[in-house]
Design a protein around this nucleic acid. Structure first.
Lengths: 158, 158
DNA sequence: GAACAAGTCATCCTTTAGGGTGATTTTGTT
DNA sequence: AACAAAATCACCCTAAAGGATGACTTGTTC
């Protein structure tokens, strides 16, 4: 069964060829009397084989595939925050300092930060003082702005 | 010039046809003596036109267009800042206040802001006090954070 | 012209932030 | 164990920020 299917094309072509040749024979027989004007006969043969060739080509040649690549733009909403660890290392800002900085940026007072981190107010002050030096800032607001520009803090949190 | 290009295909086919017919004529002349065995001639014609048909088919068949959609990711650099005027109006924040808020967010002290705006330090303090009330903030850092969340200030300026 | 909002400035007072210095403890590394 | 960095805390003092209140001017609206 599989073999039959496999050779179906070949059989089809052979059959077509046979029919064509039969047709040629028939035409030959029909126009045998008017040999002087066998131009018509030739013409018919030509047309027939031309058509046969076209049909055959359609069957034989693999279809031309013209691949058109259409680029579709997909928008990515936001580029999420990635901590600039290089900058963090270069300025030698410690984890605890960054922690304090983050809470600062959220609008907390030193006292609130101290309570949140379970340390004394003085400790927070020390951390903030170190931060200002490392960030070359005079005030906490400036430190926050600089830190955001350096990607040490997300632009807007929440 | 454009027309010439437009009919190039047609001309090509016509030329091919002409050459083929010339070939046929030449064959006719060549085999005119052996008319009794013009089977060969017929066969040649058949083969020629068969090939011509195959060639023609290849030229004529329009290619299958295979459209491949490639999704290309496009990162939007920044979603530019648009002032939330609704929020601004609802909270009744004046132009001057917003101005002070902006400079605050840039890390400037009240004194610096006063100098920049050519007003007294007390005026800046009044503005900031009003801002804190309108933004329900206790500190300038908190006011800045809130303002950024409400899109009254750009996330990161500069 | 009365009422109102915005902007300006002042004074008094309290709280918070920040600068400077020194010291102790914890922790990780060699 | 020795060392360095990080984290902790304290004290003193100044500067800046913030709260509360009142006052004056200007421009707009009704």
């Amino acid at each position: 069964m599989k073999r039959l299917k496999r050779y179906r094309e070949l059989i089809t072509y052979s059959a077509a060829m046979a029919i064509l040749l039969l047709l040629v024979r028939w035409l030959e027989f029909k126009f045998v009397l008017l040999q002087n004007q066998y131009d018509i006969y030739i013409g018919l043969i030509a047309v027939l084989f031309l058509l046969f060739g076209i049909w055959l080509a359609g069957k034989l040649t693999e279809p031309k595939i013209n691949t058109v690549v259409v680029e579709k733009e997909i928008r990515i909403p936001e580029s999420e925050f990635v901590l600039n660890e290089k900058e963090l290392a270069e300025r030698k800002i410690s984890k605890r300092e960054l922690e304090v900085l983050t809470l600062m940026a959220q609008g907390m007072s030193n006292k609130e930060i101290a309570e949140k981190l379970f340390v004394s107010l003085n400790t927070v002050k020390t951390h903030s003082a170190n931060l200002f030096e490392k960030l070359e800032a005079k005030r906490r607001t400036q430190a926050i702005e600089t830190a955001k520009k350096l990607h040490l803090l997300p632009g807007t949190l929440g």
